[in-house]
Design a protein around this nucleic acid. Structure first.
Ligand SMILES: [Zn+2]
Ligand SMILES: [Zn+2]
Ligand SMILES: [Zn+2]
Ligand SMILES: [Zn+2]
Lengths: 130, 130
DNA sequence: AATTTATTGTTATAATATAACATTATGTAA
DNA sequence: TTACATAATGTTATATTATAACAATAAATT
């Protein structure tokens, strides 16, 4: 079986919803929004989310338990993510900075740990909320 | 009322438990462990955790919903945290790297966002698990 | 002592996420 | 094209994480 490239029905429905959303979406809000399309149970949502995260189409914002679509041109960086989060309006933006990702990819700690992945969340106030 | 410096009873009980623990502790595991000391309800645990996080005595590992004591000499960096997480044994270590924190503190994104805080989680395999 | 603020106690409930098992669809290979 | 393996789905139940609401106590401030 070749590596999945097309999304399945549930994955596509849920990806489309998240992709259209201007802000991160939470699992049960997603569930509510796709019930009219026949996705009735939390597990159906979580399974699609898991797969979409795995293949890099969406990212989980850990501090918010919410999901956003990747906009780094079908993210090659599912394993190297950085976000800015406004603590007032909760706007979340994926950061794509070559310098930052290079710095973090090359970061070595004292314990000789080998990293395969990182996630960075910056918090502050966006332009509007300042 | 001056800024709290001593911990209250519940805060101290819960901090001591987390501080002794070799690994991050989850809220309900904490609850279970402090019930013999009279802390009976989840909310009592979460309130203490919130305060301990706020004053920098502990940190939340967002990707694990778990808490560890700060070991950066009573952390001045509750607002600038970095951790390494082994994906096999789940060992978590707080990273204290002057270079890293300087780089991240000075990081500026394109949108002109003003950051007051960040959290970085590295994932990989620790020495033992490699 | 009176007032304000922080902390605690308690019950109930909300929000997030997974277990277990049956079924259906899809890809691979004889 | 049939058999086999793997991936995705459907469904019910339940586990885990976290907060709402309100009453009572304790501690700091005036
Ligand atoms: Zn991305
Ligand atoms: Zn904002
Ligand atoms: Zn610390
Ligand atoms: Zn390990």
């Amino acid at each position: 079986m070749q590596k999945q490239t097309l999304l399945t029905k549930n994955q596509q429905i849920i990806f489309d919803l998240i992709d259209k959303s201007p802000e991160p979406m939470k699992a049960y809000s997603i569930l509510f929004n796709v019930q009219k399309k026949g996705i009735k149970a939390p597990l159906q949502v979580y399974r699609a989310l898991d797969k979409l995260v795995e293949i890099g189409k969406i990212h989980k914002i850990e501090s918010r338990n919410a999901f956003i679509a990747c906009h780094n041109s079908s993210c090659q960086v599912a394993k190297a993510t950085a976000f800015s989060i406004c603590e007032i309006c909760e706007k979340v933006t994926e950061i794509s900075s070559a310098g930052l990702s290079k710095y973090l990819a090359n970061f070595k700690d004292k314990d000789g740990m080998k990293y395969s992945k990182y996630n960075l969340e910056f918090f502050g106030l966006c332009k509007k909320c300042r």
